[in-house]
Amino acid sequence: MAAVAELALEVPVIELKPKPEDESITTTFVFHNKGTKPVKVLDIESACSCLSASLDKAVYAPGEMGTGKAEFKVSSFVGRHEKTVHVRTDDPAQAEWVIPFVLEVPEVIRIEPKTLQWWLGDETSPKTTRVTMTGSGPMKIKAITSTRENVEFSWKEIEPGRVYEVTLRPKSTGEVMLGALRIETDSTIPKYQRQMAFFSVYRKPESQQP
């Protein structure tokens, strides 16, 4: 039987769990060459620019343990995300070793629905989105501004520091429009001090037209 290399993690998947305030998170992971011949790492690429990884050396002997380091840039990610890093080797039997990552980014602010939508020619009836502060501590909305003048909006506190309702109505639905509400909060974490909700007036798809 021909000798082969086999790089493999010690765990099924590498989990990253940043805190709400983290801009990035790094982790180390362990793997082995479980094959019967040395393997040389030729290149490492990530399927996402938000995730990068490196290994401690280029060549691993049979049975040798290696360590890697990964960094995830949290940015505006929220919730569960599956990402991969691809390691290219000199062994045709394992030309590409895929390292799986699961990212669990805690939610701090939830806006549902994220976009309020009207069709061209619709009645200018008001619609409501709910802003829920889902983090460990309460947050208040300080101000809301619109990127468009062709709308009227207001908001009210449903549960102090936790739940708000924002109501918006276009003054006209006669033209296509896309805009946003800038929501300012009193969060102590800079990236949560400004959130966005969106609104639009679109032409109804032909399949939905009478």
Rank of each mutant, 00 (worst) to 15 (best):
R110M: 04
V108Q: 07
R110W: 02
V74P: 15
F101C: 01
D91Q: 11
E107S: 10
P106L: 00
V78Y: 09
K114I: 10
I109S: 12
V85W: 01
T89H: 08
K114N: 09
P113F: 02
D91G: 10
A93D: 14
R110F: 01
S76N: 15
A95I: 13
H81S: 09
L116S: 11
G79F: 00
L116V: 12
V78N: 07
Q94K: 09
H81D: 06
A93R: 13
V74A: 12
Q94I: 02
V105A: 04
D91A: 12
E112P: 00
S76K: 15
F101Y: 06
W97F: 14
H81W: 14
T89Q: 09
G79Q: 02
E96P: 12
R80Y: 07
F77Y: 15
V85D: 01
T89R: 08
W97I: 05
E82Y: 11
H86K: 08
T84I: 14
I99H: 00
H86R: 07
V87C: 04
H81V: 12
A70H: 04
A95D: 13
V85M: 01
K114V: 10
H81Y: 09
W97D: 01
V102N: 05
S76F: 15
P106W: 06
P113I: 11
T84P: 07
G79M: 02
K114D: 04
V74Y: 14
R88P: 11
D91Y: 15
E112H: 07
K83Y: 13
A93K: 13
D91M: 14
A70K: 02
F77V: 10
S76V: 14
F72G: 05
W97V: 11
P113D: 02
A93W: 14
V87N: 00
V102H: 05
F72M: 10
D91F: 15
E104G: 07
V87L: 01
H81K: 15
V98N: 02
S76T: 15
P92N: 06
E71G: 01
S75F: 13
R110D: 05
H86E: 02
V105K: 03
T84R: 12
V108C: 09
V105D: 01
I99C: 08
V74D: 09
P92T: 05
D90Q: 14
S76Y: 15
D90G: 15
V108K: 13
